[in-house]
Nucleic acid binder design. Sequence first.
DNA 1: CAGTGGTCTAGACCACCCT
DNA 2: GGGTGGTCTAGACCACTGG
Lengths: 240, 240
Amino acid sequence: METRSSFLPVYYRLAEDIKNKIESGELKPGDMLPSTAQLAKKYGVSHMTVRQGVSLLVNEGYIESIQGKGSFVTNPPMDKLLLNFSEENLLGSNKKIQIKLLELNIVPADEKISRKLAVKKNAKILKMKRVLSRTEGPVALDSRFLPYVKGLPLLEKEIAYAAFPDLVASHTELFSVRNKLEVSASILSKEEAELLDTKVGMPALCIEQIIYTSKKRPIGWSKMICRADRFTLTAASHPL
Amino acid sequence: METRSSFLPVYYRLAEDIKNKIESGELKPGDMLPSTAQLAKKYGVSHMTVRQGVSLLVNEGYIESIQGKGSFVTNPPMDKLLLNFSEENLLGSNKKIQIKLLELNIVPADEKISRKLAVKKNAKILKMKRVLSRTEGPVALDSRFLPYVKGLPLLEKEIAYAAFPDLVASHTELFSVRNKLEVSASILSKEEAELLDTKVGMPALCIEQIIYTSKKRPIGWSKMICRADRFTLTAASHPL
DNA sequence: CAGTGGTCTAGACCACCCT
DNA sequence: GGGTGGTCTAGACCACTGG
């Protein structure tokens, strides 16, 4: 008749148990867990089930297991942070997003582009330039470059609204991929300031994105200039 | 006499096998994997071993498993990025790092600090201010604030050189767990420019860090102003 | 219903570390 | 050696999906 507290898997409860002991301070970083055999006995489950639970904690970064020695509580690395970067995120989840396409061209690769995209100089490059706005006004100015592939028409809607990685994937017909971000700061030029409806000399976050194929070939480059007064990047340590 | 290509676990080879099929395009995002039973038969291993291999791919973000339906190739999310932020990283791995402690004080919490650290106004706050330099000169100016705990002396060496999360943990004797970052851009003030050996009006990356206990209580706040011409943040999508 | 992934077992064996 | 984690099995049962 007792209402069981767990409709959850055993290995999961075991993991929660240990996690609680860590967060309450009963187990401190560096401490060794009971051996799998001991835990198996204590919880009345099999060796494999214990391992499944402990593995979960290893994946979550709470525990480090060392063969032949034991499993130890780690002090979770706080210098590894998860950064969420997408346009929805940037502009808020509202539908009050305005995107204006300023330019859409095929241009020859100049020095810088050919370096960034690892293509020959004067190779055909699809270039687009957009202004992203929220209700209160312009937030970011975005320039995107990708190798032009003939016979792959893109709808203007798609060009304007697709997230960069998706756009790159759809234009190049290559799958999956790596995304590398570089974040810097700059000061708005006259042209940038006008497009972003503010004054020259204001500070801006400058976010460069390079999209790679599975084997290191760059297939897309994007540079985003964000008004610092209207946008900040956030990141948080680990999943926990 | 044949040299076996695998001194690696079976589940690992199985995972690599599938991974290769994904990266070569043989398996596309959305495709369903063979069922665990089929894979078990094909590779001549047990159900559990197959699951171990597939789970690995799930953890790495290649596969999504749905109970009752199947396991499917995902198009890996490119908006989730891993950011590495530490002072070694910031200043390069060299030992040519110079850290100068400009200020070390106990100050009463002002409006802003009391908000950031969720303490009462005028609570005692340990404040320190540092300049971080590489060989070519100053890179960043760093201000750190944490609630003062009496009877916890800190060595000056420690104060100057410890990573912020470590410092916070050691001063509060709490196991800090969460680290939240906020990245913005600003323009150097006269004072900042002097300390960083450059001119007023230069752009700077502005990185705020807040350290939390396991249950959301803020126990440390740091604000770092980085010369944009000497430092950029980088992040990359997922593990792969 | 049959087919899928998810959990769990009881036991075997291996690889590694320490003493 | 004895203790640790890591791999693997053969089979049982459950939970969920879909026709």
